[in-house]
């Protein structure tokens, strides 16, 4: 079985990458999880996952000739790293590699990864403003919407849901991040408008910043923090649905070819 989730917010600064790795680690207790940095234009998952020096990344797979930095041919396995109980596919940050990368190859890469996972988490771009930025949402089965408890962030979260719905992609739930104080009635109120439940409220936390600085996922760096506990509780609310791996792989392969961003 495999279900692909896009972790998306429609805006920056909501803690998407921290969330992707935290949910990934929590879900990895029960499932085979693969996490992919699908934000190829502003890749940062490698820094959060201690993979800043990864020799081969998604960028190399997206190069037309699929060759790594030393000129040798690379395949998906070369860019996949076992970390913290999950498989992690980071994306590099080289401008030269970005410029020669062909985003249309992403679907092939993801199709291949889908064959080996129960849960595929796609860390998505912080915008809906380009074709390649919406691709993870188009391809995923459901989105996990990450938002902050403010009117602008929630408005963008609603926008993510409506974009997703337009492409037949469901909502696995809404996660409120960087929450100061008590969420109060907001979690329940939001459920009136989102197709998925409010998965949780993650407290604003220095632990998340410290984990990022240490190059470790929050659940590895500060497993006893309130934020880590809240992420584990939120992950328990996500119930991956069995799907034939072939379906997802085929869908990725048949999906649109994005142009260069």
């Amino acid at each position: 079985m495999v279900e692909a989730f896009a972790v998306a917010s429609g805006k920056g600064g909501t803690g998407k990458t921290t969330t992707t790795l935290a949910l990934g680690m929590a879900l990895a207790q029960r499932y085979d999880v693969t996490v992919v940095d699908a934000d190829t234009g502003m890749a940062n998952l490698l820094f959060h996952a201690g993979l800043a020096d990864a020799p081969v990344t998604l960028q190399d797979l997206l190069a037309p000739d699929a060759r790594g930095p030393d000129g040798a041919a690379v395949d998906v396995a070369d860019a996949t790293y076992e970390r913290h109980g999950m498989r992690v596919v980071p994306c590099g940050t080289s401008l030269a590699a970005f410029e020669r990368s062909d985003p249309s190859r992403l679907r092939e890469v993801v199709a291949e990864l889908a064959a080996d996972a129960d849960v595929l988490l796609l860390d998505s771009p912080a915008t809906l403003a380009s074709k390649s930025a919406v691709l993870p949402i188009v391809l995923a089965d459901r989105v996990v919407v990450v938002t902050q408890p403010t009117i602008p962030a929630l408005s963008d979260a609603l926008k993510v849901q409506e974009y997703a719905a337009s492409y037949g992609t469901g909502v696995a739930g809404v996660l409120f991040n960087k929450v100061r104080g008590d969420l109060g009635s907001v979690g329940d109120q939001a459920e009136r408008y989102f197709e998925g439940p409010t998965l949780g409220s993650i407290p604003d936390s220095d632990a998340a910043r410290a984990a990022r600085d240490a190059g470790e996922p929050l659940l590895a760096h500060a497993p006893d923090s309130d934020a880590a506990a809240a992420y584990r509780a939120a992950a328990a609310g996500i119930d991956p649905k069995p799907k034939a791996a072939g379906d997802v792989a085929d869908r990725f392969r048949s999906a649109v070819v994005p142009e260069r961003p």
Binding site: P149, T150, I151, L154, R180, G181, D182, L183, G184, S185, V186, Q189, A190, R192, Y193
Partner: peptide
């Protein structure tokens, strides 16, 4: 600084 009253008011406006 921990209140979410403005967002609650927004969400109450269907």
């Amino acid at each position: 600084t921990g209140d979410h009253d403005a967002l609650a008011a927004f969400l109450a406006d269907e």
